[in-house]
Design a protein around this nucleic acid. Structure first.
Length: 504
RNA sequence: GGUCCAUUCGUCUAGUGGUUAGGACGUCAGGUUUUCAUCCUGGUAACAGGGGUUCGAUUCCCCUAUGGACUACCA
């Protein structure tokens, strides 16, 4: 195989959606697996849709995901510039070349005229296609006498350059994922290659850049499959060797129908973007929701690709080693937010207590709490396995920091019995005598006291939990009181007894 | 409407011309636990339908159905 060079070529029209991130990821994995180069090319030929901040967003997203760009706007490279608006001067000559070869022509039809034709066709129950069948009846350099056409060009009348799709040809081409595909060129249209504003369309710019940048494999979304024949045709007209193409299946909505769209996130309560999008209509991001990039990438990689083994947890390097484009599926994948959470849970479990403590410390800081790392590490270790996100640690540990201000009514009803106050008074006396207030020693003393008195363990411990935590949740009681300390423990027992009182 | 693409548990998927059709998420049940959660064990659940080809099709072919993409001087 020649040197592998792939590109991810998004348009800066807004935040990058997770489908786009997956496309970038597969390109990256394929490149790294084959010792190739991953290129980021910004396709901003549509000036009307350009969105400020989108380009930066794309780059920051890839960086967050750990997808490293080899050649691009910031990285540089021998094939630059890597932004199509900076390559504007390149495209015109290729459009002219096609005209010289008779594979393209000038068209003067106005957008309004074409719109009218479409409406009329629709009324008649058909679809208007600008192709060989109607070319001769429209305003272009194929139908008009040469002098009329030249006059229009010279007078500065707006025009576009269209590809002259051949008539009645059975055209064969290949896709790595789909296999071989055949279309009749009569069903294709004379696509605009060069717009009246002086910019190329996607089709022209894409083919020219892929050729000039020596792209070996084009890995992109399935929405491009219908224009693949045109792209092959363009390579043929230029006399260039086309790259290999792989069209990825789309990401679908978790419920209902259709492909995942930008609006789905807020509607269904999960992000569809890697990062928070701060402009205009803001959108949530995985990063801000508390996902680890490793988990996010792992989840995305497995949506449409699988290694053929039962392994599900992959580091980026493992993904690179295992990746093969042959194992990319053919059908669209429905995105499952629950599975995404599971991946994050798994990655969080792999973090050390110290790492988690450092992350959690940032959250505590916003609450005005400052603790040393040793204490925090112990705390986090008690609850890490019950959380999916670092931010959930607070929900699991709030009672460590403050005595309950109220007691869960259901728990009180169920666990606060008539003899609870007396039992807790006795328990308090037992605890008071313990000088070495560690989980091991409190557990030993309390257990032997319960045993000697013949009490029911559940009755004691649940009432105890109620006054310490405020509800029936949390880690083991001895771990909790070991962390909050003897003094605080005794205080909470007193407070609980006086607040809850005797059961009526 | 037209063109193209797709179709295995609810979801992501493995898989083969003859399998008890496997795994994961979810869900349900049981166990562990002083609580909740975790965890462990187990269960549930799928080859869209119809024709072929074949000794035998989930697997190969055709049709239908369903879903999806595209159908712009957007990418």
């Amino acid at each position: 195989m020649d040197r592998v060079r792939v590109r991810f070529a998004p348009s800066p029209t807004g935040p990058l959606h997770i489908g786009g991130v997956r496309t970038a990821l597969y390109n990256y994995l394929f490149a790294k697996k084959n010792g190739g180069t991953f290129i980021l090319r910004i396709e901003d030929t549509d000036q009307a849709r350009f969105v400020e901040g989108a380009e930066e967003y794309i780059m920051e997203s890839l960086a967050w995901c750990g997808i490293k760009i080899d050649e691009g706007i910031k990285e540089g490279g021998k094939y630059g510039p890597y932004r199509q608006s900076d390559r504007k001067d390149i495209y015109r000559q290729y459009a002219d070349l096609l005209i010289d070869r008779g594979d393209a022509y000038y068209a003067f039809d106005t957008p309004q005229e074409l719109e009218q034709l479409r409406i009329e066709a629709e009324k008649a129950g058909s679809t208007f296609i600008y192709n060989a069948a109607v070319r001769g009846m429209l305003k272009n350099s194929e139908s008009l006498p040469k002098n009329v056409s030249d006059e229009k060009l010279n007078s500065g009348e707006p025009y576009v350059i269209r590809y002259k799709m051949p008539r009645g040809e059975e055209f064969h081409f290949d896709d790595i994922i789909r296999g071989s595909i055949v279309v009749n060129t009569d069903t294709l249209d004379d696509k605009v290659l060069f717009k009246s504003d002086g910019m190329p369309t996607y089709h022209l710019a894409n083919i020219v850049d892929d050729h000039l940048m020596e792209i070996s494999h084009v890995i992109r979304g399935e929405e491009w499959l219908p224009s693949l024949p045109l792209h092959y045709m363009l390579y043929r007209s230029f006399g260039w060797q086309p790259p290999l193409f792989a069209h990825l299946p789309l990401l679908l909505k978790p419920d209902g129908k259709g492909k995942l769209s930008k609006r789905d996130g807020d509607k269904m309560g999960f992000p569809v973007f890697p990062l928070y999008w701060p402009y205009g209509e803001t959108a949530k991001g995985y990063r801000e929701e508390g996902y680890y990039p490793e988990a996010f990438i792992n989840m995305l990689a497995l949506l449409g690709w699988n290694p053929g083994t039962e392994q599900e947890i992959f580091s980026m390097q493992e993904l690179i080693d295992a990746f093969s484009i042959d194992r990319v599926g053919k059908s669209g994948s429905r995105f499952d937010p629950e599975k995404a959470k599971w991946f994050n849970h798994m990655y969080l479990q792999k973090r050390t207590n110290t790492e988690l403590a450092m992350e959690f410390r940032e959250i505590l800081r916003t609450k005005g709490l400052h603790l040393d790392m040793g204490e925090l590490g112990d705390l986090v270790g008690m609850v890490k396995e019950r959380v999916t996100f670092v931010k959930e640690i607070w929900d699991q540990t709030d009672f460590f920091f403050k005595a309950p201000e109220s007691y869960d009514p259901d728990a009180v009803k169920k666990r606060w019995k008539g003899d609870s106050p007396d039992m807790l008074k006795e328990l308090k006396a037992v605890l008071e005598k313990i000088s070495d207030f560690t989980p091991a020693s409190t557990e030993r003393s309390v257990k032997s006291w319960i045993e000697s008195k013949g009490y029911n363990t559940g009755a004691v411990m649940n009432a105890f939990r109620l006054v310490i935590v405020g509800s029936l949740r949390g880690p083991h009681m001895y771990d909790i009181i070991g962390w909050i300390g003897k003094e605080e423990t005794l205080k909470r027992i007193d407070k609980g007894i006086s607040s809850l009182g005797k059961k009526q």
